[in-house]
Design a protein around this nucleic acid. Structure first.
Lengths: 155, 155
DNA sequence: TTATCTGCAAAAGGTTTGCAACTGA
DNA sequence: TCAGTTGCAAACCTTTTGCAGATAA
């Protein structure tokens, strides 16, 4: 798994700016959890985000994780998805995009190229759409039956 | 809202057959709840399904609703979707299809015409995809700001 | 300085499980 | 007949709320 990427600082700064636009603050706990969240790139339940943070020595409350996910969701910086019957979150950019989701380890890749051209016809008035692809990431294709190549995302 | 459609009986019979294939039974409570569920065509939380059934004089337990949703999901006859932050269920045919989901009342229409032609490239191996359109059904386009034209699906 | 945020504990909700009685095939 | 199902109550897990102290801007 990656360690902090070179542009992590910029990334966090950009998020901080967006938060401030909404009278929100990029506090230390938020920043620490965000770093872990950004690095993992896996769909995670609030519990998992919390556990991962704790494992990394970050002292944070579960409540804070929930509140952070709520704030990020409002800013379109996090998205909730259903995987394996549970609500899991992924940090993601606010632009229109789709996801490639690994059924095995929960890894998520973004796809900015939207293949949905033909909108539904009829009396229904579509305002948005959500498209996600489910399958296996390159890593899990190799390990295949292995249970959790990179974490605890699958049940 | 519709009342029992002419082919409801056939529909239930087909479901009964599928259930029996899996050593499951189409019992009276299941049948009654299914009728209500099929008629509503709205995304509903287990609680809502339960409440609706009770309102219609069907004596059933919440537990049974949960277990039925689990069984139907295994058979690909029900699907869980996230709407307004809650997990809601819709009864749906096992064939590949997409949904038009009304953000206001939770009404769901199926679309069997799949507009996803271009699959993602790269090392990710896609096994399936899910595409849903969110917007307003014809009814809610008219009433627009009205809160719950046809039920209690929105929060 | 002060509005926002924090962690904790408690409350509130949602979902699952254990069980004895019941029922469909 | 009897495996599968039922409703209820209790257990369990997830999410939200209240609050006094801490903190970013």
């Amino acid at each position: 798994m990656d360690t902090t990427t070179p542009n992590m600082a910029e990334h966090l700064e950009a998020i901080g700016r967006r938060l401030r636009q909404k009278n929100m603050r990029l506090t230390q706990p938020r920043q620490q959890v965000l770093e872990a969240f950004l690095n993992s790139r896996r769909l995670q339940t609030p519990q998992e985000i919390f556990n991962n943070a704790r494992e990394q020595g970050i002292n944070i409350g579960l409540t804070t994780v929930y509140r952070m996910l709520e704030s990020l969701s409002e800013l379109n910086l996090a998205k909730a998805l259903l995987l394996h019957g549970e609500i899991r979150y992924i940090f993601c950019p606010p632009e229109h995009h789709h996801h490639l989701i690994c059924n095995n380890c929960g890894l998520v890749e973004e796809v900015f190229n939207c293949p949905v051209v033909q909108m539904p016809t009829g009396s229904f008035k579509s305002q948005s759409h959500q498209l996600d692809f489910y399958g296996l990431c390159s890593r899990c294709q190799v390990k295949d039956t292995a249970l959790n190549p990179s974490g605890e995302a699958s049940k």
